[in-house]
Simulated scan of single mutants.
Amino acid sequence: MGRSLEWFFDIDGDLFERQYKRHLSGYWQWKDTADGLHAEQWRVFPQNIGPHLSIDETSLSRGELYTIVTNKEAHGRENSIVAIVLGTDADTVIHALRQIKSELRNTVKEITLDLSNSMHRICRMAFPRASRVIDRFHVQRLALDAVQEIRIQHRWDAIDTETDARETAKLEGRKYVVERLENGDTLKELLARGRYSLFKSPEKWTASQRQRALMLFGLYPDLKEAYLLSQDLRAQAEILVHGI
């Protein structure tokens, strides 16, 4: 949850998760159940269920992953959590959700999730009448990951080229002088430092990020094309969600 928001809104994901746990979720007000084992593994809140849910995994403390089902209509405020389950095991999550009466689960019309097979299985078994909708943030994340994969491949190529040039200079008994670009970066430095520009939309670039992005696009047209496609996907998602 925090990781997705961090990528797309330039916020501190760790801080958001702490605030969510300590203030928004009501976590500290939860009472222990009679079954201590279940209290440690999951909590369900049937009273918070609604027709439009969201399911995702996040890390709340000490690196432990939790699967969280929330009521989208609560917009992350108090009483938004329908279930929180320690871990991501599909069978465990399904068992926890089935503690909610089927009559209530069958009122769910739509559930938003990511692309993982386990999440689809959980939704199919726990909310059989709900339509499953892929979270747009996960789709955008895949597009951004694809852009970064192109950048990383070019960086490996640059590292290999520089290594070969160093070896050649050594064999020829001359000093190797690394070539620097107009902003002072070497090519492999540009490809490493340019990663931050590729995560952001152009209007959020700093001056140095803009310079690096334009240099990368000039050197690698495939990287420019992939970036523009990812930004177009983001813009289309905004139009669908906000109607702008």
Rank of each mutant, 00 (worst) to 15 (best):
G2N: 06
S4R: 13
S4A: 13
F8S: 12
F8Y: 09
I11P: 00
I11G: 00
R18E: 14
Y20D: 06
K21V: 13
R22G: 09
W28S: 15
W28A: 15
W28E: 15
Q29R: 09
W30V: 12
D32K: 10
D32S: 10
E40Y: 09
E40P: 03
W42S: 10
F45Q: 00
F45Y: 07
I49G: 05
I49V: 13
G50N: 04
G50E: 04
H52I: 14
L53R: 04
S54N: 11
I55G: 02
R62Y: 11
R62L: 08
G63M: 00
E64D: 11
L65N: 08
T67Y: 01
I68Q: 05
I68N: 02
T70Y: 03
N71G: 04
N71W: 05
N71I: 02
E73I: 11
A74C: 10
A74L: 06
R77M: 08
R77K: 14
E78A: 14
D89N: 10
D89G: 02
A90R: 04
D91H: 08
V93Q: 01
L97D: 03
L97C: 04
R98V: 03
Q99C: 07
K101A: 14
L104N: 08
N106R: 10
V108H: 04
E110R: 13
I111A: 00
I111T: 06
L113Q: 04
S116F: 07
N117P: 09
S118T: 15
S118M: 01
M119T: 08
M119F: 12
H120R: 14
H120D: 09
A126N: 01
A126D: 00
F127I: 08
F127K: 02
R129P: 04
R132F: 03
V133G: 02
I134V: 15
Q140F: 10
L144A: 11
A146T: 11
V147F: 01
V147A: 00
Q148N: 10
E149Y: 09
I150P: 05
R151E: 01
I152C: 07
I159S: 00
D160K: 13
D160N: 10
D164A: 15
A165R: 04
R166W: 04
A169T: 07
K170A: 13
K175I: 12
K175P: 05
Y176S: 02
R180N: 02
K188Y: 10
L190W: 01
A192L: 15
A192E: 11
G194E: 02
Y196F: 14
S197Q: 01
F199I: 14
P202W: 04
W205H: 12
T206W: 05
T206S: 12
Q209I: 03
A213T: 07
L214H: 09
M215W: 06
F217N: 00
G218S: 08
L219T: 05
D222L: 08
D222C: 06
L228N: 13
R234G: 08
A235T: 14
Q236E: 10
I239K: 14
V241A: 12
